[in-house]
Every structure is written in structure tokens, then in C-alpha cells.
Amino acid sequence: MKLTLWQRMDIVARQMTPALLTLLAVMVTMLPLRLPDFGPVAPWLALISVYYWSVHRPDLLPAAAVFAIGLFSELAAGTPLGVTTLVLLLMHTAAVSQRRFFISRSFMVVWCGFATMALAASLLVWFMNMALGGVVMSPRPLVFQFMTTVAAYPLFAWCFAQVQRLIQR
């Protein structure tokens, strides 16, 4: 069966959606929302997106895409090079390796899995920032960011689930 150009474009668009959504999450996090004291504790949306797609459709978000998105976010946001990329890559691998376990379980289990991995990711970011900067940093903003990220997971997971259903047709 030969596909028309339109059909091929349609397939490519479907395949690229998870990566583009993750990229969008990075951009949204960068927007100056100017809510009082929200900036430093804004949820880490890219982490949510990488986890969700790694568990549900790892074929559409390969490690190379995660790497590219992580690198883009570091270059654009001016954060230390390599830290976000490494954490996102490890998150991706961890989620992919556990997906057989998650896929048959309820949402609560997947959420708890996310919370556990997000905690590990936050700790890793904290340690690496301290190691690279050579200074001791207060973990306070990080704790709040971890909490907002875990709290934001259900909403974004629901949105991603709608998108997933759309691209599966």
C-alpha cells in the first residue's frame, strides 16, 4: 500500500507529538508568569512529560529526543550545561525500564512511581548543582519545586492521555 504525502505527513506529525509537547513544556516553564514568588518553585513540566511518554509511548520519545530537549532547555534557560539533560535521560531510562510494571497498574501507582523518581531527580539536580558550583545550596526551593511538580502531575497526565488517544487513531 502506497501512502499519499498527506498520510505520511499525518504519521510524522503523530510521531513527533510527544517530543514537541515536551519542548513546549520547556518553553512554558520559561515564560515569566510574574506570580508572586512562583518562579523558583514552578513545576518542572519537562520532567512530567518525559516520564509520561516514557511510560506510555517510549517508541515516540527516544533517548536521543530527550537528550536534544534537555540540551535545548539548558542552552535557552542558561542553567548549568549537562545537569538537566543527564537527569532527564536517567528519568527516561528509569521510566522505560519500569514501564511493564506501571502499564498494568492503576493511576495511583503510576503517580507514586513518578513521585519517587521525581524525588530522586530533584536530589540529583541539587547535588550536581552544588558539585558544579562548589557551594552549599539550601534545598528549600527544590523541596517546593518537587511538591508542585508532583501535584501538577495528574492534570498534565490527563492532558497527555487525551493527546495520546488522539494520536493513536
Partner: peptide, 15 residues
């Protein structure tokens, strides 16, 4: 105009 906030708990910069 401030168009972006670096975001994240360990950085205070804007674009």
C-alpha cells in the same frame, strides 16, 4: 522587555 525567566530553583536570571 523581560521575555523569559530561567526558571528552576538554582538560577535567578531573565532574558
Amino acid at each position: 522587555r523581560v521575555i523569559a525567566d530561567s526558571g528552576g530553583p538554582f538560577m535567578r536570571s531573565v532574558l
